[in-house]
Amino acid sequence: MNTLTLAMRDSSTMVRRQLKRLVRYPSMTVQLIVTPVILLLLFVYIFGGTLGTGIGGGRDTYVNYVVPGILLMAAATAATGTAVMVATDMTEGIIARFRTMRISRASVLTGHVVGSVIQQLLGMAVLIGIALAIGFRPNATVVEWLAAVGLLALFIVAITWLSVALGLKSSSPEAASNAPMPLVLLPFLGSGFVPTDSMPTVLRWFADYQPFTPIMETVRGLLLGTPIGNSGAIATAWCVGIAALSYLWAKSTFNKA
């Protein structure tokens, strides 16, 4: 067997390990699914009427507007969970054991990433299901749906590698739970909950150029038919860039430790 086959085999072993762990310890998964659902309900039923009026409609209009933001926020929240899981795992003796074995080094991290991505796609499906139940009305074709889900999956991969790196950099699981916090705020400081043109200039400048905005605009455009412009290309570039850099960062941090 060559190196690549071995790396694939070790990674799939580690993915199986991670999935078993997620099943054994389901409270984290439940929390990651429930939190965004609560946020969705909160924004639609409490703020939705007023905010909907602000963007020239009502609660129904706002459901459609807010779902992409909540989807990204769910991913950002999950990133915190991933960082904590990685940091906790690193404190366990089993990681030292893996390091003394002839296995592909990145496979441990790949296991975490694939496990988290599966967990998050599951959460996303639940979230979209509930959104549809409370009035989310996308007008997308199958191709547009696939493109939107593809971009979201790419985003999840990117943010998960970033949180793996942050988890590895953290000195303790507690510290790891703080590191990805800013990510949770980024949907607010973008076009996630209100259009950026309602913001003060400085904030608006930031909101327009930060990575979450083009991703949310693209998902919104694909699902609801709003104009996308060059957001799609920018969004993809951001995701690929963040994923690649975070992967390298995580890998070198893991090798050094």
Binding site: R17, K20, R21, R24, E92, G93, I94, A96, R97
Partner: peptide
């Protein structure tokens, strides 16, 4: 320190 996966 025990190097077992405690969840498994």
């Amino acid at each position: 320190y025990s190097a077992v996966d405690k969840l498994l």
